[in-house]
Amino acid sequence: MRVSFDLDDVLFVSPDSYETEPAPGFPFNRMFPDRLRKGTPELIHALQERGYEVWIYTSSYRTETYLRALFRAYGIRFDSIVNAQRHQIEVQRDRRERLPQKLPNFYRISLHVDDEKAVQENARRYGYRTMRVYEPDEHWVEKVLREADRIYRLQQEEHA
């Protein structure tokens, strides 16, 4: 079971409109300017404790090195990171058909969490499962966990 997260407006949010995790201490709060949605470490750890893999799947060009260093400051380790560059090389490649900006099923991701409506809309057509998290929601941690557990059970039934 593999769960992936979009970054912008899902895990990375503006402290002006969202509750965020406390920033790391100086000077790391300057080195890593992105702020995490409150509950992010708790959610990632809870998913990993269940034995699920947790990935980043972003259309941003932030490098894997930067992302690993940033999340380390919050005690988070992702199992894998797909950024725009990796998607381009591994998914889009030289295909003439323009694929959507994310194709979670290419990586056998069982649930992708994203704020973009387009990602939801493409889900049925391209055959992946997604959940929309797009605004401040104090219950987002429980909601994502519940959905991940639901899909885990579904997959078990499918394989039974």
């Binding site: 100086f26 000077p27 300057r30 080195m31 490098t63 894997e64 090195t65």
Partner: peptide, 15 residues
Amino acid sequence: AFDGQPFLTLSSIDQ
């Protein structure tokens, strides 16, 4: 320099 204060930095990349 962060907030005008100098630090030694380690920078890396794997590509």
